[in-house]
Write a protein that binds this DNA or RNA. Sequence first.
DNA 1: GATGGCACTCTCATATTGAGAGTGCCACGT
DNA 2: ACGTGGCACTCTCAATATGAGAGTGCCATC
Lengths: 345, 345
Amino acid sequence: MTELTERQKALLLVIIREYIDAAQPVGSQRLANRYHLDLSSATIRHEMAVLTEMGYLSQPYTSAGRVPTEEGYRCFVSSMMDQAELPESIQKGISRQFQQARRGVDEWMHLAASVLAHQSQGASMITAPRSDRPHYQHVELISTQGRQILMVLVLVGGEVSQQLLTLADPVTQERLSQTASRLNAVLMGRTVDDIGAMETRTEALEQDVLMLILGELRRAGESSAGEIYTDGLTNVLAEPEFAESDTARRALRVFEERSTLQDWLARTTLNSAIGGLQVLIGGEGGWEELSQCSMVVARYGVPGLATGTLGVLGPMRMPYARTIPTVRFVAGLLSHLVNERIAGA
Amino acid sequence: MTELTERQKALLLVIIREYIDAAQPVGSQRLANRYHLDLSSATIRHEMAVLTEMGYLSQPYTSAGRVPTEEGYRCFVSSMMDQAELPESIQKGISRQFQQARRGVDEWMHLAASVLAHQSQGASMITAPRSDRPHYQHVELISTQGRQILMVLVLVGGEVSQQLLTLADPVTQERLSQTASRLNAVLMGRTVDDIGAMETRTEALEQDVLMLILGELRRAGESSAGEIYTDGLTNVLAEPEFAESDTARRALRVFEERSTLQDWLARTTLNSAIGGLQVLIGGEGGWEELSQCSMVVARYGVPGLATGTLGVLGPMRMPYARTIPTVRFVAGLLSHLVNERIAGA
DNA sequence: GATGGCACTCTCATATTGAGAGTGCCACGT
DNA sequence: ACGTGGCACTCTCAATATGAGAGTGCCATC
C-alpha cells in the first residue's frame, strides 16, 4: 500500500474528527465550509475517493458521505498517541479527588471508575491492584459462634480475604491466637509454591487452617479473582450507535459477565508494559460482543508486586482525544498511589 | 367504588395474564378464542368497558385493545400474593446451589442476585446482611511498611472492614498486638454509643486506633454502607418497553447510583417485616426514574442482628407469578442462612 | 343478562413522492 | 499535472397517502 501524502493524512484526521463530533457520514461540502482547508469540495471529493480506495474510509451507501473504517480509526489514533496530554487544570482536579479518598483501595477504585467514565463519556472498568503471585503476610483466627471461626488472611500489599471455618470441636480464642502466631512466624512472605514445598507435620487445627490459607492464596492468584469496578454504563447507552436495544444489550453483557471480562482484561494487557496503553478498535481484542466498540485499556501498578488493569469502553466513534489522555493519566496516578502505599511511603 | 363481580375479577386476571405474555393490548376476540371462557366477545367487550370505567384497564387509543392500569396490576398482584409457591423442583435446585457456595457471604450475594435475575427475567439487586447498630467483635493491627499499619476490624456477624493508618513513628508488631488485645478486651460486643459513653484516657496509639474504630463502626451503620450486588441488567433491556434507549437509560441509571439505590431500598423496606414482601407498581416507591417499572422487594435476615434487602426490577408488565415466589423463597433461604451463620449453627 | 351483527375508528405496514445532500466525472484554467 | 466549477445522477429520509386488520360501541334480538 502506498504511503499517504501529507494532505491526505491531514484530511483523514479532519474527517474523523468531524465524524466523531457529528455522528453522521461526512460529505465534502460540509467539510469545505466548516473547516477552512484551502481546498474546494471537488478536490476533497477526489481525495476522499482515494482514501476510500485505500481502505481508510467507507460509504454506507452509494453517494453518501464517508465514514471511517477501522483502519482509518487506527491511523487517527496512532497519530495522537504520542502527544495528547490532559489539560493541567483537569489533572489537578483529579489528583485532588484522589488525595481526599482516604478510605483505601476500595474508594480509589470507585473514584477511578467514576473519573474515567465521566471524562471519556464512556463505560469504564477497573480491577484492584493485585499480585499474580500472592505473598502471605498475616493470618488471624477469630472465634465467633460455637465451633465457627473466622479466618482473616492479609496478603503482602494489603489485600484482605476472609473465610469461615467450622471445626469439629470448640476451641478457645487463646489457642486460636497461638496457632495464628505460629503460622505467621513460619509463613511470612511466602507464596503458594513456597508453602507447598515445605513439608510440615502439624496438628489438626493448624493443618485445617493451612489448607484454607493455601486455597485462598491460590484463589487470589487467579486472574478472575478480586472485584471489578465499573461505572458509566449509561453513558454508552446515550450514543446513537446503541440506540437499538439489541446492540446495547450485547455491549452491556460484557459488563455483566464479570469474570469473563476480568480474564479478558488480564489476557489483553498481559504483555503490555506499565506505561503503555492499548487501543482496541472494533473486534481487535477478539471478542464477538465488542465488534462494534472500541476500548482503551492500560495496566497500572508496580510489576511483580501489584498490578491492575483499567479501561474505557465506547463506540468506535469514541472521543479518543479525550479518552486516551485520561486513561493514561489515571493509570499513572494509580501506579503512583500503589507505589506509595505498597512499596512504602 | 363498587365491588367487582366474580366474573369481572376473573376476566381482569385473564386479561392481565394475557397482556404480560403478549406485551400487546388485548382485545375481546382474541381473549374469547385463546381462553375458552364461556362468554362471547361481545360480552367480554361489555365487561371490559365496565372495567375501563372503573380504572382497572385503559385504552392506548380509541378502539384499541385494553392495557392494565397500575390499579389493575395492583389487583392482579394482591390476588396472587397469598398463594404462589415456587415449584418444589426449582426450590431444590436453588437450595443446592447455595449449599455449594462455601466461600461465604460474598458468594451468597452473587448467587442470590444471579438466581433472582434468572428466575424473574428481570434485573436483581441485593445488599449484604448488616446490622444497623454494628457491634464490635475484634480488631487486629498489622504492621506493613515502615510507619503504615493495617487495621482489620471484625464486627459481630462476621463483617470485616479494613483501614490503613499512618503513624508518626514506627511501632513494633509486638506493641501493635498488645494494643489490639487491650482494645479487644475492653470493646468486645460494644456499639458506637457504648464506646462513646466510656471515658477512656489512653496513650496516643490506642487513641488513634480507637478513633478509627469509631469511624468504621459509624460507617458500617449507615444505610448506604456495604456493597450492593446486581445482576440481570441486560434482561430488562430485552423487554419491549425499554426498546427506546432513553427509557432504558433511565432504568439503568437506578443501578448505577448505588448509594442512592441502597438508601432507597433501606427506606422502602424499613417498616416491613422479615417475612413480608412488597410489590411496588409504577412510581409507587416515589422515584421518578422508576415510574415505568415495577419492583418486588423484601427484607431478609435476623431483625436486630443482621438484615439485608433484595429485590427485582422489571417492567410493570413483569411476570409477577414467577417473580414474587422467587423473591419470597430466596429471602427465606437467605434468612435461614444468616440465622445459621450468625446466630450460631 | 347474553349474544350476533354491523358500522365505525384507529393503527400499522407499505408504497409513493419530492427535497436535499452527496457523489463522480468531465472540461477547463493555470 | 493538478485544482476547480459545473452538471447529471444517485440515494436517503421525511412526509404523505392508502388499505388491510383488529377492535370497539351499540342496537336489536333471544
